[in-house]
Design a protein around this nucleic acid. Structure first.
Length: 577
DNA sequence: GCCGTTTTCGGCCCGACTGTTTTCAGTCG
């Protein structure tokens, strides 16, 4: 069992305890432990053997023993017993928006309903309203929740959500009653996927703003409408959009609160209490011994951070991954910006499955301000992507030589995205690889191999002296394929020892590495390449998404090979040989 | 279930909206 699986067991336990009406703090203890485990760099297995689990925050004797039991036996008796007490369907019912543990339990106790289908039937037939505490309105809400549940994608990709958010903001900006407007939430933290959109505005006429908001043509359904807050569903997306109207004096504290993350907020509030303060969306308050509160900051985030004796923490870092501690000692990283990117090394041309010629790509890269562009077409075995024959590689090398003479102001590098075959060998012989400026290697088949085999494949590619970059290391494809199981620590070790960079693949479907793995790579000292994986020049802009992800993974300029100037990069690429 | 610079018990982050009540509980973020 790896850390993620153990964390999942704790989350499931928390859900079941919630249904059973356990005290909230016990439930939170399991959730907090799951959080800690998930963001942990080290293997729990090793810590269990060394008996150091209780040094982790939120893990005491009981949970330490439970982890040890899982590590040693592969299962947890307590969890097995607990599962028997609660039908799986009840856990499913919890996923319906508006339906929490208390109501699920109430319905189950009264009508013995334990599936979503059963719930829907009872709601349609008006059975639920016979239960004390449930009336028509609740019944309607449950039906609406079920409807949403059925058609909802769990999360929406950032680049789609940010598009929708921009449209709402554009419409709202037309209102003269609105002063400031900004999106918050995971969108502001630039998470790869988001659950909903939070928009904050300041206005002296909140009711009027809310009235206009719910009537926007972008809205398909109004979920809630109060005097300062409203929730709607955006048209054609099933994405929930929340709007909150605030006083200008509290905009900073509200922005901070609704940007989150939840874990960050909790940590910040605990820190506030230690300093004799209280922080909420309405501001930072000093609290006197007789519990009198006085507002001391709230208009801007800067002001609040400063009163808390923290340097400003960029939203992308607010995940409780050590950023608050780093801000206390002024050791936050200097995050990269899109302007720091000097070139893109992962681009496909008409030599494989790209839509544009090398010349067109080079011209567009130049227009974007890049200093170099690496053309990395697929290798021969990837037939579905029109992988290049060896003969074509030599044609491509010649073409790039000519183009480099005719196009000034940008350097075209000739590369490949070569397959790491299921037996761990590379799809072209060394005699071919050595003719190229750089080589990216990637797994494109045999994803279902064991963790050991997959890890070995990637490690052996790292060791190849012509391979500079491992592309999309975990193979995740959003909504299509989960991350493959690889021993990431082993991969990091091999990458570090052999001067191989790991890629952040910017394609919206990938986002691979994820931010936690990026952070691990940075802490291990492994270099990163950010590649757009563009198959048409309009996709070169995906670089933005990779920069977002890099910032979430704490990356600085020096961590990233395509922030190097071309001469330095060329030296780095040849370093292995 | 965890945790401790008033510490081994009694706290544990904070507030809006909704529905069902008649002062509040449940849910959500």
């Amino acid at each position: 069992m790896d850390n993620k699986q153990i964390a999942n067991i704790f989350r499931k336990i928390a859900e079941i305890l919630e249904l059973q009406g356990a005290i909230i703090f016990r439930i939170r203890a399991y959730e907090r432990a799951a959080d800690t485990i998930e963001r942990l760099g080290a293997e729990l297995k090793v810590m269990a053997e060394q008996d150091t689990l209780t040094t982790l925050s939120g893990i005491g004797k009981d949970l330490s023993d439970k982890i040890k039991e899982i590590v040693e036996t592969g299962s947890l008796k307590y969890y097995g017993d607990l599962k028997k007490e609660v039908p799986e369907g009840l856990l499913q019912m919890l996923k319906i928006s508006g339906l929490g543990p208390k109501t699920v339990k109430l319905i189950n106790d009264n009508l013995k309903i334990n599936t979503i289908e059963g719930l829907e039937k009872a709601a349609r037939e008006g059975e639920l309203r016979k239960i004390e505490g449930i009336r028509e309105k609740t019944e309607e809400n449950i039906l609406r929740g079920i409807d949403l549940f059925k058609k909802r994608e769990e999360r929406t990709l950032f680049y789609k959500a940010s598009d929708i958010s921009d449209k709402f903001i554009e419409q709202l900006k037309k209102m003269k009653e609105i002063d400031k407007i900004e999106s918050a939430g995971s969108l502001r933290r630039k998470k790869w996927t988001v659950k909903d959109i939070d928009i904050l505005v300041t206005s002296k006429q909140p009711e009027k703003v809310i009235d206009t908001f719910v009537k926007l043509s972008l809205v398909s359904e109004v979920l809630a409408k109060g005097s300062t807050k409203s929730s709607v569903i955006a048209k054609d997306s099933n994405l929930q959009v929340d709007l909150r109207v605030l006083e200008a004096s509290k905009f900073g504290s509200a922005l901070m609160h609704f940007t989150g993350s939840k874990a960050f907020n909790v940590k910040l509030r605990q820190l506030a209490i230690k300093k004799g303060y209280k922080v909420s969306e309405y501001g930072l308050f000093s609290v006197s011994p007789d519990k009198k509160e006085e507002l001391i900051a709230g208009q801007t985030e800067d002001e609040i951070f400063s009163r808390m004796e923290l340097v400003y923490i960029p939203p992308e870092l607010r995940e409780d991954r050590g950023e608050i501690e780093a801000a206390q000692s002024n050791k936050l990283p200097e995050l990269i910006n899109i302007q720091d990117i000097r070139g893109d090394l992962h681009v496909h041309s008409t030599y494989s499955d790209g839509k544009d010629t090398i010349e067109i790509i080079a011209q567009e890269a130049k227009r974007l301000g890049y200093r170099y562009i690496g053309i990395s077409d697929h290798s021969q075995s990837l037939r579905v992507a029109n992988g290049m024959s060896i003969e074509n590689i030599f044609k491509k090398i010649e073409e790039i030589k000519k183009l480099n003479k005719s196009i000034k102001g940008i350097e075209i590098l000739c590369g490949t995205e070569v397959d790491i075959l299921p037996d761990g060998t590379i799809d072209y012989p060394d005699s071919v690889l050595k003719e190229l400026d750089f080589c990216i290697a990637a797994v494109h088949s045999g994803f279902k191999q064991t963790k050991e085999k997959l890890t070995k494949r990637i490690v052996s590619a790292c060791k190849n002296k012509y391979i500079n970059i491992i592309a999309h290391p975990t193979g995740v494809l959003w909504g299509v394929r989960e991350e493959c199981e690889i021993d990431f620590d082993e991969v990091l070790k091999a990458a570090l020892e052999n001067d191989t960079a790991l890629e952040i693949n910017c394609h919206p479907m990938r986002g691979d590495l994820n931010s936690l793995n990026i952070l691990k790579a940075r802490r291990a000292g492994v270099k990163i390449a950010i590649g757009s994986d563009a198959h048409i020049i309009s996709e070169l802009k995906f670089m933005d998404l990779g920069v977002n992800l890099s910032r979430r993974g704490w990356l600085e300029k020096n961590d990233i090979i395509n922030c190097m100037e071309v001469s330095k990069l060329e030296k780095w690429l040849q370093k292995k040989q």
